[in-house]
């Protein structure tokens, strides 16, 4: 469980020290939860807890960065990593936009409805007159295309990095 969690966190771009801490905390919470609740998928729950902890960590770090930058001197200290991060997310946005533009319009529509508007597969299917299964296929295929486009463009894409 621990090694799978670490693998998950590292593949999502968490720094090794952060991944260790988050994995530890996730396991502790998982154990606490398992004593009071019936858990469906252990891994799904673990990943969700880890995601939330990562977001918290990230927010805390960003707050600290902003506090630091109040000091004028600190501006001179290397901002390179965050600049890289901005450039990478800028490129990621370009690549994703281009890929969405090249996609069949129907698939794009499905992705917008599912990801932005959180519509269920069944509702999307009814609106666009296709089966829920076909909606799922569009989402899977769309996600694969987007991921492949990022890999091809060599964008170092890891959300938590």
């Amino acid at each position: 469980m621990r090694s799978t969690l670490l693998r998950y966190l590292r593949a999502r771009g968490a720094r090794p020290d952060v991944a260790d801490d988050v994995a530890q905390e996730t396991l502790a919470r998982l154990i606490a939860l398992s004593q009071t609740q019936q858990i469906g998928s252990l891994f799904a729950l673990a990943f969700r807890i880890a995601d939330n902890l990562m977001i918290d960590t990230r927010r805390r770090e960003m707050r600290q960065e902003t506090q630091h930058s109040d000091d004028v001197d600190d501006e001179w200290e290397s901002d390179d990593p965050s600049l890289d991060r901005i450039l990478d997310s800028r490129r990621a946005l370009d690549v994703l936009s281009l890929c969405l533009r090249r996609m069949p319009p129907l698939r794009r529509e499905v992705l917008i409805r599912r990801r932005l508007n959180h519509e269920s597969c069944r509702a999307i299917g009814e609106d666009l007159s296709m089966s829920a299964k076909a909606v799922e296929k569009h989402i899977t295929r769309g996600l694969l295309d987007l991921r492949a486009a990022l890999d091809r463009a060599g964008v170092d894409f890891a959300e938590f990095a």
Binding site: R12, F47, S89, L96, L146, F157
Partner: peptide, 11 residues
């Protein structure tokens, strides 16, 4: 993890 990161990303 790689696909989930993409799906949940702000980008």
């Amino acid at each position: 993890a790689r696909h989930q990161a993409l799906w949940q990303s702000g980008s």
